[in-house]
Simulated scan of single mutants.
Amino acid sequence: MVASSELKTKADRLLNFPNMIVATVGIGSSVKHDHLELISTDINAILRPSANSIWKYLQSNLAVPGCLACEVDIGGDIRILLDSSISTRQKLFDEGRKFIYKLIEELISFNLLNVNVSVDIFSEEVTEAIPLQNISRIKRKLGGLSLVEYNGHNVNQSLLAQHIKNIGMTSSSTSFIIFIPNGVFLDSQLIERIKHSTNERSIIVSVGLIEDPMWDNLEDLATYGYFVFSSEDAILLARYLKKEMKTTTCT
């Protein structure tokens, strides 16, 4: 989808019709989130390329009041994985940490009672733990830190893949696995291992750090291009996660 003033104008014309909703579906590896918002009726009308999620959206929005009973539930697990390997400079690690702070603060402001959030720092060793007490009310929202080890300078791919697999096995609902990697360790083999380790309820979100992000690898890693963000997008990602964790069931 190409961002253009012509497309925006056509979308605006559609909105002039009564009861018209313009929805967008983010398809492809490089989806521009600000463009999706520009031509959609609202953020709830921005959809990922999933037949099930699109059907749920249409079902709830086309329901005739009084004919269908719809229940809305918000829930899921968010696992944030921050790379602090020896090849990750302190500046990049701090950037990833600030992203996590902002993301979690925004999620907390939504008061999402059925959402579990935890942070994993993976490296050769834990060089600096995130001070959880510095985030407001975080003890009720954030689980403990766990460690995914490397072997020297090389990623222990089996251990990392097993960790991803364990996340899916221990989650009773949809899991969003947010990778904040140093792009150096991502290669096609590791990306395939990670993606094959997830189950049908796990969605991989990749976050690129501002300084020299490996966008091609990040786009390959994410479940959909729709879930590729930069470290400047913490608030935007929080809003998307809230929307994606909302389930509407109509009977």
Rank of each mutant, 00 (worst) to 15 (best):
I235W: 02
I164W: 15
Q157I: 10
N156P: 06
V119C: 05
G28F: 06
A222N: 07
R140G: 08
I135C: 04
L58K: 14
M245D: 00
L14Y: 15
A11L: 15
S123D: 04
N151R: 15
L62E: 06
I121R: 00
A11Q: 14
L209W: 02
M1G: 11
N16K: 15
L68H: 09
I194V: 10
L7S: 09
L68T: 10
S109L: 07
L38C: 12
T249N: 12
I210C: 10
T9S: 12
E106S: 13
N154C: 13
Q189V: 10
L147G: 06
K242I: 07
V72H: 14
S118L: 09
L190P: 08
I108Y: 01
L186N: 12
M245Y: 08
L81P: 00
L36S: 02
D83H: 01
F122Y: 00
V22T: 12
G152H: 02
L237H: 01
V2Y: 09
P65E: 04
V115D: 03
G66F: 00
I108R: 09
V155H: 02
R193L: 09
A161N: 09
S146N: 13
A69G: 08
S53R: 15
D233C: 03
K56H: 11
R79N: 07
N19F: 11
L186W: 15
V148I: 11
Q157C: 11
E124W: 04
L142F: 06
I138F: 05
Y101R: 01
I74W: 06
K56D: 03
A238G: 00
H163S: 12
E149H: 13
I21N: 06
C250V: 01
L142S: 06
E149L: 15
M20V: 14
T174A: 08
D73S: 10
A11D: 12
M245L: 10
M20S: 12
A129K: 04
L103Q: 00
D216W: 15
